[in-house]
Amino acid sequence: MKEQIYRWAGPSLWVLGLGVPFALSANWISILALFAIYAVVALSQDIVLGRAGMFDMGHAVYFGVGAYTTAILNVTYGWPIFWTMIPAIIAAALVGGILAAPLVKLRGDYLLVATIGVSQIFHLAMVNNTAGVTGGPDGIFGVGVPSIFGHQLISQGNEYLVDWGLLGIVLLLMKNLEHSRLGRVFRYLKEDELAATTLGVNARYYKILAFALGAGIAGAAGTLFASQLAVVSPGAFVFTESVTLFAIVLVGGQASIPGVLLGTVLMFVVPQVFRELAQYRYFAFGIGMIVVMVVRPQGIWPRRRRMG
């Protein structure tokens, strides 16, 4: 019985979410649209950090690569938004994979520090308007909205449904990952890399794959983010964003889908709701992160031990 509830609660909530544009105010629609986008990024961070166990503190970079790819292709070259998603995913996955290729040999804290460095370099590269295409500190304005069969999805509700749809797809992928060789290999590498390699696991290949996969999914979210906000600027992908994503996974619960979603609610939705208290946001986050870790070091909603 309990098992049944657990199995159906997630899909039911997602279906319920489809009704949001018809039931809630414009303010709530935009908050939940952003929730969907950030949840996708957080889940992709969880692939690298929570599942494969690599301390990646630069995940906002891949999100940013996706968003910039979309913004550049759409604003400068006039591509339709949906078409930009494919190059956005590829670009982000390539950046993730290429960066990971030398970095995955670093362990633990060393990898964490190196990814902090990557994050800082990316931010500076965007601010300095590298190659003259990123728009410098102000970024790129006027990113369009998606269209389906020539119909522009102008309404906020329609855009929300696209975001919610991507979240649904990614949740499905994460669910599949749990019962597959790929998901298990990530966990083997996280728990004991040496034991895994002596069983024939090519650790380097799978670690790079984890980065590329996480980056690609973050890149897809970047496309929708650019379209949702109509503007892409370096400020959205600063190091603090990477820290926040990192914290979401650990505060929520590593490799736990409900945990990561809950973490996203706490770190992204709650501040949107209490916007008048914005200046206390990070002060409260800081205290919250300490308290949660001290009280529940495994996160608020840790991974359930499957007995099946």
Binding site: L182, R184, V185, R187, Y188, D192, A195, G200
Partner: peptide, 24 residues
């Protein structure tokens, strides 16, 4: 060196890694 936090079956499945064909 068992994979902690994983079941006995999941541990033994690790041994079948090389016999598994599924692509990522």
């Amino acid at each position: 060196r068992l994979f902690s936090g994983m079941t006995v079956l999941e541990n033994v499945l690790a041994g079948q890694h090389m016999q598994t064909r599924q692509a990522w």
